[in-house]
């Protein structure tokens, strides 16, 4: 990218100090509000939660009864919490590849359009602005309700199939279909935009050169030119999808009520910390275990997929 490299040759000696002071001020002006928000809403709660996790903190967030690693032992031997990690794994294994594939497919399709591209881009992106709660209610009450006039059951009825209770019964686990489709609908459009930006950044010369070398358009160019060029974006998308999957709460909470199954970690922790026991100590310990897990997985993924590493240094 030649434009960025030339810009760095700059700054004549004239009044260098004044310039620097002004740019320092500008730096804090721009980042200050964001940093303050980050401090208050992210770092303080994390530290507070870390502190709470070493205390017996029922019905209070200012505990005095130090218990060491007791809360961690409770959580790590808690069947429900460990089960929630399994639930999460199942969820991530389904949702990450499907969203990746669907958003890439949408991006490729929209990128090929010759007209109305902006329209379709907006249409596919719009669901991102819908709240998870509202979408869950639509899925639960109109699309996947269990009565004969629910959308899914109506469609099944055309083929003579009986109505299905999608959410009430865990066997067969149809609730996964509901949960996965709602999230796909909500987030695929956003990742499509990321892919679209990356697609448009692939230099056309590459395709021209490939065509001259005899590569057939379609699968061959996609496999050997498009996909490798999207590696950085793909890695970022997968990472973001994984983190988003870890944070899944709204659709599980709203679609599955009074169940003992289908609870990802955050839902489990919600019931643990904010349920009738109000056990903030154990809840915080669980949250920290979860944070550590996310860090670990992210680092591992970076290692495996070479996140942020230069293409040439491989």
């Amino acid at each position: 990218m030649p434009t960025t490299t030339t810009r760095q040759v700059s700054a004549p000696a004239r009044s260098r100090r004044g310039l620097r002071a002004r740019s320092t001020l500008a730096f804090w002006l721009f980042t200050g509000p964001f940093l303050i928000g980050l401090l208050i809403f992210v770092y303080v709660p994390i530290l507070w939660s870390a502190w709470l996790s070493f205390f017996e903190a029922r019905f209070t967030v200012t505990p005095s009864d130090f218990v060491g690693f007791e809360n961690y032992r409770t959580m790590l031997t808690d069947e429900d919490f460990m089960g929630s990690l399994v639930t999460f794994t199942v969820f991530a294994v389904i949702i990450v590849p499907t969203t990746w594939a669907l958003s890439l497919a949408l991006a490729l399709a929209v990128n090929r359009l010759r007209f109305m591209r902006a329209f379709f881009r907006s249409v596919f992106f719009l669901p991102t602005a819908v709240s998870y709660v509202a979408a869950s209610l639509i899925w639960k009450m109109s699309i996947f309700n269990g009565v004969r006039f629910g959308l899914a059951n109506t469609v099944l009825g055309w083929f003579g199939a009986d109505g299905t209770a999608w959410l009430a019964s865990p066997d067969p686990p149809w609730y996964w279909l509901v949960i996965v489709t709602v999230r796909l609908w909500l987030q695929a459009g956003f990742y499509m935009i990321l892919f679209l930006a990356a697609l448009q950044n692939i230099p056309p010369e590459l395709y021209e050169a490939a065509a001259i070398d005899g590569a057939r358009p379609g699968w061959q160019t996609f496999r050997y030119i498009t996909l490798p060029q999207l590696r950085a974006t793909s890695t970022a998308v997968i990472l973001l999808l994984l983190v988003a999957a870890y944070q899944a709460f709204d659709e599980f909470f709203n679609l599955l009520s009074k169940t003992t199954w289908g609870r990802p970690p955050l839902v489990e922790l919600y019931y643990k910390a904010l349920g009738e026991n109000q056990d903030y100590g154990a809840g915080s310990a669980g949250a920290l275990i979860l944070t550590l897990l996310i860090c670990l997985v992210t680092l591992l993924q970076g290692r495996i997929m070479g996140f942020g590493r230069a293409e040439g240094s491989k």
Binding site: M1, T5, L194, A198, T235, V237, L240, A244, E311
Partner: peptide
């Protein structure tokens, strides 16, 4: 080659900010 690494990071940052 030198341009690639900065693009990598920037695309990731852009994605994160977008999210």
């Amino acid at each position: 080659d030198s341009g690639n690494s900065s693009w990598d990071r920037r695309s990731a940052l852009r994605a994160a900010l977008g999210l």
